[in-house]
């Protein structure tokens, strides 16, 4: 069995240029909660796209390939994660046949990934991209000939859709990752995913989901750390999903992580970019010098469904 380390060697993302602040969102009727409260919870503005998800995905994928000089034909698989159903179809007139016009196939063609198997990852909510990374790692371990997989997520909320989901403010965006053997950085040390179907009906179980979020997060993080033989003290940086600062203030004490070890730079200005948060933050943390080689990083995420996911990397 091949035991060569697998990691995330490159990350690129695409956020729409247009930003919208909380006040404007409120005036457009796109928030449920008062502006002041959401601001107190740590949000300021979000990115809103006038292009469909597959277009943002294409931008992110091209960026990844160009910035890191990836030979498109060297990619063995392309995993496309989208949290909402609209992200899994190319925009069109909505006919039956168009339901089979898949973004992942379009991306493979546009970018010349001619050797890449294409797979969609759905119904995992905001944990979709992390699930894709875990699937990519499993694929590489199980397929001796395969060397690299690109994982990608993209979501754009329809224009009339509320921008607040259970007290979090949502951005559109896309993120692409290169997962490969012998990655020079971000080596995957452990991954854990917990799904609890009791919470499948998100509107009806909204309160129970809020309540379940914290203790389940604590359990999955502890379990994932234990798999590596780590404790919270071993973690140099928590790379979050961009739910509210407030929820991180509540969660961090449960995890035993001091607040200065949370990379929270992006919550206010970028909002919650659905499945892409952790990896956008990982890229920015590297770029801003918050990560040193060898650091142990903890990525935690939650997605409706309900799903909790945790990934531990060695930088």
């Amino acid at each position: 069995m091949d035991v060569s380390p697998i990691g995330i060697s490159a990350i690129a993302y695409a956020l729409p240029e247009r930003t919208v602040d909380l006040r404007t969102l409120h005036e457009c009727g796109l928030l449920d909660s008062p502006v002041d409260a959401l601001a107190e919870f740590g949000f300021r503005c979000i990115h809103v796209s006038d292009r469909p998800a597959d277009e943002l995905a294409l931008t992110a994928l091209r960026r990844l390939i160009d910035e890191h000089a990836i030979d498109p034909e060297s990619v063995d698989a392309l995993l496309y994660a989208g949290a909402i159903p609209e992200s899994h179809r190319v925009a069109g007139d909505g006919g039956t046949l168009e339901g089979f016009s898949y973004p992942v196939a379009r991306l493979q063609y546009e970018c010349g990934l001619i050797n890449a198997a294409t797979i969609g990852v759905a119904q995992a909510g905001c944990t979709g991209l992390m699930s894709a990374v875990a699937l990519a790692a499993s694929h590489l371990r199980a397929t001796p000939d395969a060397r690299r997989v690109i994982c990608l997520s993209a979501d754009v909320l329809p224009a009339d859709r509320k921008r607040e989901i259970i007290y979090n403010v949502i951005s559109d965006g896309a993120c692409a990752l290169l997962v490969e053997r012998d990655a020079p950085r971000n080596r995957i040390m452990a991954h854990r995913h917990v799904a609890k179907g009791y919470y499948w009906n998100s509107p009806a179980r909204k309160n129970e989901i809020v309540a379940a979020y914290f203790p389940t997060a604590r359990t999955i993080v502890r379990d994932t750390l234990t798999r590596c033989g780590y404790t919270a003290d071993d973690i140099a940086l928590v790379v979050p999903h961009n739910v509210s600062q407030r929820s991180w203030q509540i969660l961090l004490p449960l995890l035993g992580v001091p607040p200065e070890r949370l990379f929270a730079d992006n919550i206010a200005a970028k909002g919650h970019v659905i499945a892409a948060d952790n990896f956008i933050n990982l890229r920015d943390a590297w770029d801003r010098g918050r990560v040193a080689a060898g650091d142990r990083l903890l990525l935690f995420n939650f997605g409706f469904g309900a799903n909790w996911a945790c990934l531990i990397l060695q930088a």
């Binding site: 919870f41 609890k196 009791y198 379940a212 914290f214 203790p215 389940t216 604590r218 359990t219 407030r246 929820s247 203030q249 509540i250 004490p253 449960l254």
Partner: peptide, 19 residues
């Protein structure tokens, strides 16, 4: 599969209640 409630310090509990 409901999780056992987490035992937390009082400020954390109070922050959750406030939120």
């Amino acid at each position: 599969a409901i999780e056992r409630p987490a035992l937390v310090d009082l400020p954390t509990f109070e922050l959750f209640c406030k939120s």
